[in-house]
């Protein structure tokens, strides 16, 4: 019995010793706080400043298209070029065939137009436009339902791109592969305008408000399968 008591004493004695030597003095406490602050600041800077830059690759559009200029020349607004096909599907970015109607040859003085005619029209190659508003493949989206049936304005989702004179840089998420315009410029989900972001919450925000007119064509019900077929 005495032996075991002795051992217990020895162990607790060592523990007391150890804790007395590990106790931080003033200077080491400062270092600990400093380390915490350094860690905090570095990770905050990384998370808020460096990470967004790393997350998105920045790509220039092949041609710097002037929406403003073209919008003034066409008669039917956005739909002059971004139209709905006869079967109700949306044509998206115009094909070369549409551009060729006017741009068989260089029309003006713009070097971008010259580049377009030279590199694409003459060679008959489609322009590999980068689509800012492309939704993920798991999303079914019908322009006809929104523009025709619900009479929504293009601007509600796409903002004032129709008035722009230059195409902005296309920022592509390196992980998901989608455009930053869909995901929203603000990484914490802050948004001011309806067109600042085009994620699921933004869709459902409007769908929630207008429940009466929504719903899947097949089931006549609101829910996941309206968009995720």
């Amino acid at each position: 019995m005495s032996n075991s008591d002795d051992r217990t004493q020895t162990v607790s004695g060592k523990a007391a010793e150890a804790s007395s030597t590990d106790k931080p003095d003033g200077s080491s406490r400062g270092i600990i706080v400093l380390c915490f602050c350094i860690g905090l600041v570095v990770s905050l800077v990384f998370g808020w400043v460096v990470f967004p830059k790393l997350l998105y690759s920045r790509k220039q559009q092949p041609i710097d298209f002037n929406h403003n200029l073209h919008a003034g020349l066409v008669s039917n607004g956005c739909e002059s070029c971004h139209f709905l096909r006869d079967d109700g599907t949306y044509s998206g970015t115009p094909k070369l065939a549409q551009c060729i109607d006017c741009h068989q040859d260089v029309q003006g003085n713009s070097p971008e137009e010259a580049k377009f005619v030279e590199q694409y029209v003459k060679k008959g190659i489609e322009v590999p436009w980068l689509v800012y508003a492309r939704q993920p493949d798991c999303v079914f989206f019908s322009h006809a339902a929104h523009v025709k049936a619900a009479k929504m304005d293009c601007v509600t989702c796409h903002g004032d791109i129709g008035d722009s004179e230059h195409l902005k840089v296309y920022e592509q998420n390196r992980i998901s592969g989608y455009s930053r315009d869909v995901e929203g410029a603000s990484l914490i989900g802050f948004k001011k305008h309806t067109w600042d972001r085009m994620k699921m919450d933004d869709c459902s925000e409007c769908h929630q408000k207008q429940k009466a007119v929504m719903g899947s064509v097949q089931t006549q019900k609101e829910g996941c399968f309206v968009c995720h077929k």
């Binding site: 200077s27 380390c35 915490f36 350094i38 905050l44 998370g47 990484l187």
Partner: peptide, 28 residues
């Protein structure tokens, strides 16, 4: 001035706290 295990732990906690308050984990 001595940099010991505690300092490293503290640095780690700082990084964890900072990361948690940045968009990085949530966005990822």
């Amino acid at each position: 001035m001595k940099i010991d295990r505690r300092s490293f732990l503290s640095l780690g906690i700082g990084v964890a706290a900072g990361t948690a308050f940045s968009p990085l984990p949530w966005k990822l």
